[in-house]
Design a protein around this nucleic acid. Structure first.
Lengths: 349, 349
DNA sequence: GTGAAAGCGCTAACAC
DNA sequence: GTGTTAGCGCTTTCAC
């Protein structure tokens, strides 16, 4: 069976092509091509014959040929860090649906948060002749953007927004988001705030969030001490361990701000394990608003990010660019703060 | 900006191709091609010149050309129902990683559980000349399989397993899985068992699970009454509503068996809302073992399915087929029953 | 080991 | 409206 495929690919009796259809219908290949793209451009008589021939022969056009001749692959690429994080899988799904409705197909790769790998994947996509490309984040070497420039295809960076962004982008300001969160956290009386976050060196969104946190604290005359930050992988267990590390050092924080909901869930569990009451003794804040956030015990306060909207807006931007339509290239989406039971006022000691 | 792309695509000063490289290196295109595929097949002197030319010109080979000439796209397709369900996004991610390591790229589409759409997506993939295809489930019209047959590419159906499967497959028997679950549930003393499940008419795995449930009950002299089944969308809220519907009818079940963990989570929440104690008054069983299962309150009993393993095994099978290696085409993966606090003995009334 | 040249399946300019 | 034809960028015989 396995062998069959290999053999058959090579020696396959040249599968039916446009010329076979043309011959069967007694027309030229050009007419078949015209029929394929816009049936109304050929006469009814011819139309029927071509249609019949296509059905008869089970003709499936070969897009590689088409791509070569028309310089359009009708493929759009997307590279996301991972599909294990629901925010990206949701984004990709919506992206794909919108592309499909416009006749494009999705070439998908994951970078696993590895810049090196992301670059290689992008290169492969360009080799495949993608008509456009969606990326996550903006932090990458200049060779990357130069490569895109040379390919001169539209691309967009997502989960990033700044009015003055150098590149087209679609997202929100992580800095502003966290600034606002922490402003409110301080307002609730918290002074000793711990942070559980992903690794900032690999991910520009994490760095921006930290910046926002620091900014807010500074404005309130506070400072984010190094021993109040626990860097962690984006897993449930790592979140719990991160809290454990935080608790080992100095005075216990009254609030923990987390880089995402998975980490926050881990923190919640670890807190329960240690008999620390949430939110009475410890307030916990997530980020992302995964479906699970509201189901946790206690329900998790978090920041709702519009995952689907980002996927859709990215698709819309790229499609507009491809079709030559005028379109906004710095797209801000709304986030929402969801205050649930996991977060409360600072306990007065 | 938008316009720029369109214009530039059409009028782009023919980007650098293999002949440019050949010219720059003072060799034939054949030699460049040889160098690309196996540097050792050209002399060291020539090798250096070609390598330099490629760097110099930033040459990026165009795979459409290659695909046309070599009859290999180096693209593999995957169609899954959705990426919103973590089992599929996990599977896809692993699938993609394994493909990438072998030099293939992933073309991805979702069917949204719509057979019609799945068929169209599959067709598009064949148009793109995918070298192989991964699908979910086996229930589809014969035109579908005939189309694949004509394309004569290897494909595999996943989340399905049967020794005697007509098509290559990789998964487990949903029927056996649920039979074993229910056998045990009955052993725990449950006689009045409710089922919250997805829609069986669109999904062969759901149907198989129901079959397994019925079979187990029958062996124990029980029967699955129609009013003990609640069909539901695969969402959290729908799971809760499904439980509500079940409770409206007749005597309250002592156990609820769910089609997946999301539904089960909804059931759990609805039960709490109604002050029904889990597991004392109502036992709840999920399916799939998502990360959240163990975090729910109480921790959810469920069936662990090897999502990554399925993605990997599917990739391995397809790659083996493509490379002409002998390979098992009916692959069974192990599932594991996770008994956690949400499930207990039937209460004695 | 290397080059020349004939396509792969399709589109698009041009001529009718 | 329709057909002819010259490529698109690459691989792959086949000679040398």
């Amino acid at each position: 069976m396995a062998v069959k495929h290999r053999v058959s690919r090579r020696s396959r009796s040249r599968s039916v092509g446009i010329s076979d259809v043309a011959a069967a219908a007694g027309v030229s290949t050009a007419s078949v091509s015209r029929f394929m793209h816009d049936p109304m451009r050929v006469s009814p008589k011819l139309r029927d014959r071509v249609e019949a021939a296509i059905k008869e022969l089970n003709y499936i056009p070969h897009r590689a040929g088409r791509a070569l001749a028309s310089r359009q692959s009708l493929i759009v690429g997307a590279i996301v860090p991972t599909l294990e994080n629901a925010i990206f899988s949701r984004q990709v799904m919506t992206f794909q649906q919108n592309l499909r409705d416009a006749g494009y197909t999705l070439l998908l790769a994951t970078s696993e948060y590895d810049p090196e790998l992301e670059f290689r994947q992008a290169r492969v996509m360009l080799e495949h002749g993608v008509d456009a490309l969606m990326l996550v984040g903006q932090k990458r070497g200049s060779e990357f953007y130069e490569m895109l420039e040379r390919a001169s295809i539209p691309f967009i960076t997502t989960w990033i927004y700044s009015k003055n962004s150098i590149h087209p982008c679609c997202g929100f300001s992580h800095e502003t988001a966290m600034k606002r969160v922490v402003d409110y956290v301080v307002e609730l009386g918290h002074r000793n705030i711990g942070v559980v976050t992903g690794f900032a060196n690999v991910n520009d969104r994490v760095a921006a969030r930290l910046k926002g946190i620091r900014k807010a604290l500074k404005e309130h005359g506070l400072e984010l001490m190094r021993d109040k930050i626990a860097y962690s992988e984006y897993t449930f267990d790592a979140g719990g361990e991160a809290l454990a590390r935080l608790l080992e050092k100095g005075e216990r924080p009254t609030a923990i701000v987390c880089g995402n909901d998975i980490l926050a869930a881990g923190v919640l569990t670890e807190a329960r394990k240690r008999n620390i009451k949430v939110p009475e003794e410890l307030s916990v804040m997530g980020f992302g608003d995964l479906d699970i956030a509201a189901q946790l015990d206690p329900p998790l306060s978090t920041v709702r990010t519009p995952k689907a909207e980002i996927g859709e807006a990215a698709a819309t931007y790229l499609l507009n660019s491809l079709e030559g339509r005028k379109t906004e290239s710095r797209i801000e989406v709304d986030i929402k703060f969801c205050w649930r039971d996991s977060f409360g006022r600072a306990s007065k000691k």
